[in-house]
């Protein structure tokens, strides 16, 4: 018989990380003040970690704790996302007054700098020290 505990934990971990990326960006962009969602995430994380202590088995306890700890991380990520927007490392939402203020300050951007393909990693970008002189 197959042991599905790992599969459930893998799903919980991946979905928590996915939410930590996509959900946190969304939440930070929509929130005028990031403190209320931070408090909500910290409380939700606390509830899940306490629930993990009273779970009937390792799988349920593990899922509760993985999601709970990810929510704590997300609360911290809200602050980092706010900083990214302020410095133009993530797109600002002009309809959010907090972001509008960052845009007015001049550093924030509406453009997502990560929304592009990287250049080919096989191409040498180092200037050659022993370059042969060009022959006409």
């Amino acid at each position: 018989m197959l042991q599905t505990s790992g599969l459930w934990l893998a799903l919980a971990t991946f979905l928590s990380i996915w939410w930590g990326h996509v959900g946190v960006r969304w939440l930070e962009a929509k929130s005028v003040d990031i403190r209320p969602p931070m408090v909500a995430l910290i409380i939700a994380g606390l509830i899940l970690n306490v629930a993990a202590l009273f779970a009937p088995n390792v799988t349920i306890g593990g899922v509760c704790s993985v999601v709970g700890i990810a929510l704590w991380w997300d609360a911290f990520e809200l602050v980092r996302q706010d900083r990214r927007v302020r410095h133009g490392h993530a797109p600002a939402n002009p309809s959010n007054p907090r972001h509008a203020r960052y845009l007015a300050e001049g550093k924030a951007t509406l453009h997502d700098p990560l929304d592009r393909e990287p250049s080919d990693p096989m191409v040498d970008t180092q200037p050659s020290a022993h370059r042969e002189p060009e022959v006409a």
């Binding site: 779970a55 704790s65 709970g68």
Partner: peptide, 13 residues
């Protein structure tokens, strides 16, 4: 109490 769940959560971190 189920400490293993919490240990798995910390391991994920």
């Amino acid at each position: 109490m189920m400490w293993e769940g919490l240990a798995i959560g910390l391991f994920s971190l």
